[in-house]
Amino acid sequence: MVKNKREMLAGYVDGELSEAERQTFEAALAQDPDLRAELEEFKRLQEVTGMVQYADLPDEVWENYWQSMYRKTERGIGWILLSIGAIILLCFGLYETMGRLFADPEAPLWLKIGLSVGGVGLIILLVSYIRERLFAYNRDRYKEVMK
């Protein structure tokens, strides 16, 4: 019961208790100096938070809010397309290079091995990253809201 009365302290300070609750709490307050001390502390906290406010942004920022969003969306789409294009070109370039390299009997062996190992490493990294993203997505409790 003491715990409940202590929790009621928040409601008392905020004027959120019913008349019956308020009377019960005030009766407890009269008997408990620690509770009175907590009350003063909460009141002080309210005073301090009542004197501050969140910073705001300049009007011109708000006026450009929609345009700013639109530009971000455009850029997001642009980056995605650029990334896809870059990946396609990279893969094609890699495929062509490695194909010619392996077909060339005079190409040094260390170069062939180095490129092969590097290529395999890149694939492993890509697969690992995709797996991690899928893992996080499947466990995202809020994906119905956040999709």
Binding site: G50, M51, V52, Q53, Y54, A55
Partner: peptide, 8 residues
């Protein structure tokens, strides 16, 4: 981000 409220 948190400032004194000059209005009070």
């Amino acid at each position: 981000w948190l400032l004194v409220d000059d209005r009070t």
